[in-house]
């Protein structure tokens, strides 16, 4: 048995135990550990954000690339949110980011998420699996028609779509359970192995 002597392993063990204690009862130790880790995570975001600003804006500016002034100004405009009189100005850079994000996702979605997915349904209907793939996609799409009442053919198709979705949700449920279990196994391997040295 070889207990760890590393500071970060000990710290991590104390954090892990503190957070696990929460499921048995909310307690002071848990609250402190939670605050610690949220604070550290936020600090980490600041540090890495600053790294990007330094590498992509400040250094190029020092090298004479004047155009980066524009995104720097846009970035600084975000902080007007904290001043009563000017807070609306922060909407300009936010709008810039949201517009950019919307444009990028719109141009990608049509091809990758709609056309490619429909195209992948163009299969020869010579096996039950292929038929199920086409029928399932159709039925689920029909479930999400909101301006058509679900009766008659649409109703039957929507019910079938709901059943397909339940199978999906079951699969997602099952695989999420697997994921959470893996994570917990990882935590126990850490506690029993890296920290206490009981596991090989």
């Amino acid at each position: 048995m070889n207990m760890s002597t590393s500071v970060s392993v000990w710290l991590a063990a104390l954090v892990t135990i503190g957070l696990i204690s929460f499921v048995f009862k909310e307690n002071f130790y848990y609250r402190i550990v939670e605050s610690l880790y949220v604070g550290v995570s936020a600090g980490h975001a600041i540090v890495l954000g600053w790294g990007n600003i330094r590498n992509l804006a400040i250094r190029p500016l020092g090298e004479g690339n004047v155009a980066v002034i524009i995104p720097i100004i846009l970035g600084l405009m975000l902080f007007t949110r904290y001043f009563e009189k000017w807070h609306r100005v922060s909407r300009i850079p936010t709008g810039f980011l949201m517009g950019l994000g919307a444009g990028l996702s719109m141009r990608g979605i049509v091809g990758s998420q709609i056309i490619e997915q429909i195209k992948a349904c163009y299969v020869s209907l010579n096996s039950i699996n292929n038929i199920l793939i086409v029928v399932g996609t159709f039925a689920v799409l029909s479930y999400f028609f909101f301006t058509v009442e679900h009766d008659g053919f649409v109703g039957k198709s929507a019910t079938l779509g709901r059943w397909f979705m339940m199978l999906c949700f079951g699969a997602a449920y099952g695989s999420t359970v697997t994921g959470r279990i893996s994570l917990f196994v990882g935590r126990l391997q850490f506690l029993l192995g890296d920290w206490l040295g009981i596991l090989q």
Binding site: I118, K119, L125, F138, L141
Partner: peptide, 24 residues
């Protein structure tokens, strides 16, 4: 938005059904 999306879904369903039949 819901009306617009419903019509678009209708188009996708049509593309799906017609395409599958033509491919078959």
């Amino acid at each position: 938005a819901i009306l617009g999306q419903d019509i678009c879904k209708g188009i996708m369903v049509a593309l799906l059904v017609v395409g599958v039949i033509v491919t078959a």
